[in-house]
Amino acid sequence: MTTMEAPATREIPYVSAVAEAFAQLMREDPTIFIAGEDVALYGSVFGVSRGLLNEFGPQRVVDTPIAESGIMGLGLGAAATGLRPIIDIMFMDFMGVCMDEVVNQIAKMKYMFGGKAKLPLTIHTMAGAGTSMAAQHSQSLEAWFCHVPGLKVVMPSGPYEAKGLMVAAVRDDNPVIVVNTKTILGMKAHVPEELYEIPLGKAHVIREGTNFTIVATGRMVSESLKAAELLSADGLDVEVVDPRTLQPFDTETVVASVRKTHRALIAHEAVRFGGIGAEFAAQIQEEAFDYLDAPVGRVGAPFTPVPFSPVLEKEYMPTADKIAAEVRRILGKQV
C-alpha cells in the first residue's frame, strides 16, 4: 500500500485552508465577492471567512439578511452581469429555502438562453451530522444537486482538497456547489501556501490496493482509510478512491480501479436510499460488470431524519467500523 499525499509544506486545519483559498482568490481577482449570513463581521459561524472583512472591506465581504432566496439571487444576478460571486449558505439544510434559485434559475440559465449566459458562481455550504444539531442542521444533500444538469458539485475530503477544489470551483465559469463537512473542519494536513487547483471532475486514488475498492466522499474518505487499515488484518488490500467532484463524476478512474480489484463499495454520509452511491454503483455495474466478483456494496446513513440525542446520532453515523463490516459482509465474512 502507498498513500499519496500533498507536498509536505505545512499543516493547517481544514477551516483555515478554506479561508486561505477565499483570501488568495480575492486578492487575485477583484470581481470576486463573498456574501452570506454572518460571513463578514462574525467571519462565518464556522470561521471559513474569518479575516476577510478586515482585508477586503464590506463591499466585497457582505453580511446579508437571513434570506436565502435573496442571497442566492444576489449571486445569480451578479454572476450574470460580470462578477464572480461566492455565496455562502450556512448549513446545507438551508438550501431548501433557495431551491428555486439554484435548481430552476442558476442551473438552467445558460441552457435556456441558448448558451449565452455565463455564471461563474460558487455556492459554498456545510453538510454533515455528528454535532447534535438534529434534523435541520445536519444533512448531506449533495445527491439532490448532482441530479440537476447545469450544476457541478464538489465534496472535499480534507484540507488539501478543500483549498484546491475551492480554487478550481471559484475559477470555473459554471455554477459549482462546494459541499464542505462541518465535522472535519479541524482536520489538519499539508496544504501548500500558494494558490493551486485540483481539477474538477478528476478522482484521486488516495490509497492504492489490489483486491477491494472503496469509493468514498467527503468525511467518509478518512473513515474509509481507517476501514482499510482494519481490513488489512483480514488480508485485504483495499484501494480507496476519492471522486472529489461528484458532478461531473470521474467514471473512468473509478471503473479502472474496480476492474483491477473486482470488488467495490461506496461510502457516503448521506442517507443511503437514493444517495449518490446508487448512481456510482450503477455506473460501476454498467462499465465493469464482467470484472465484478461480488455485488457492489453501499454504506450510508439509514433512512431517517438525523436525530438529536448523541446516542441516536452515533447509531445514525456511518463510520470506519460500519464500512469494514459491510466489506466483510459482501465478502461473505460475517462479523
Binding site: 435573496g70 439571487g73 445569480l76 444576478g77 450574470a80 452581469t81 460580470g82 434559475q105 435556456m112
Partner: peptide, 30 residues
C-alpha cells in the same frame, strides 16, 4: 432573453425576477 440588451430573461417561475434583479443591481454598484 437578450443579455446584450440587459434583458436577463423572461421566467417560468412567478417571483423569480426580484432576487436576480438585486444581484444585477448589486453588480452595477460594485
Amino acid at each position: 432573453s437578450d443579455l446584450d440588451l440587459g434583458m436577463l430573461g423572461a421566467n417560468g417561475i412567478v417571483g423569480a425576477g426580484p432576487p436576480i434583479a438585486i444581484g444585477a443591481a448589486f453588480s452595477n454598484k460594485y
